[in-house]
Design a protein around this nucleic acid. Structure first.
Lengths: 148, 148
DNA sequence: CATGCAATTAGAATCATTCTAATTCTAAAC
DNA sequence: GTTTAGAATTAGAATGATTCTAATTGCATG
């Protein structure tokens, strides 16, 4: 077993993910905090929301740093950026394959996990030779609470 | 047959749509021009693109007016607003049911028409009691030209 | 402990869009 | 035809999210 590094902290979900994904991203305290906040948030917060929550644990952190951290975490595949309409970006630490449901009444965003394999080319005609890499799906409507 | 109104102009797609949809939107020259430009555009232009094209026929029109017209046409169901990621809004005069394919290489947006009925609730688990009103779908990848 | 590069910061800049307030136009009423 | 009320249009300011800039700080390595 390799010696524990001097400044080692308790492993978190982030360490796990970094290990699994094999990324080489530097793990700074800010990035760790931003990830931690996101991992504890079930509501798909915006950058500003994250900033607001991180501030309490890490006073002095700037919004720019939060944007930076979110961008790094996103490009390294540790979190997901969520876009609904043209509203501000939201972030999500759930890496399981899923799409988002958006309640038009209360604004809540709910993760929806796959029930069956989905192949977009079965449902829409694309020009021959098109290569699909990704399908962006958001379901809109009313959540159980709001449709009562 | 009712008498032709004094200032009647040649009927356009817009008149048709207004008749079909039974909307009561006032048909001003600007709105007509904005619609016409969009109807002739196959590339899902942004508000600014539309402004740029309308300018040539209607010098002096302002970007604010174009935004206004696009909004009115959209809310009256005469055109569609398209959102891809968090980029600026694009507009589309194709009212046939369709979704959009976005080429990640050249940026082109292509209309994809339905090949089969699609029910999102068959593919993703939503909490019991959820009411779906709309599904937003965009396919990303490479168009035939760019995947060569 | 120096060195260099990455991270962080505050604040400015940008970009799309919306708002405001003033002006002009239109359609219907008179 | 003229009046009038409401809608459309305008330029420019304001907003809000995000990105950029330039300066500073921190960390890892030699």
């Amino acid at each position: 077993m390799p010696p524990t590094p001097r400044n080692a902290t308790k492993p978190t979900g982030l360490d796990c993910r970094l290990a699994v994904l094999g990324t080489d991203m530097r793990l700074t305290p800010h990035r760790r905090e931003v990830f931690q906040v996101l991992a504890e948030s079930m509501d798909h917060p915006t950058a500003y929301d994250v900033f607001d929550r991180v501030k309490d644990r890490t006073p002095g952190i700037s919004l720019a740093t939060v944007y930076n951290c979110l961008e790094h975490l996103t490009t390294h595949g540790l979190i997901r950026q969520v876009h609904l309409e043209r509203a501000q970006s939201r972030y999500c630490a759930n890496l399981h394959e899923h799409i988002h449901f958006h309640c038009e009444t209360c604004g809540k965003v709910i993760d929806a996990h796959p029930a069956a394999a989905f192949d977009p080319t079965k449902f829409w005609n694309l020009p021959a030779g098109t290569k699909v890499t990704r399908t962006d799906i958001a379901i809109h409507g009313n959540c159980p609470n709001c449709s009562k």
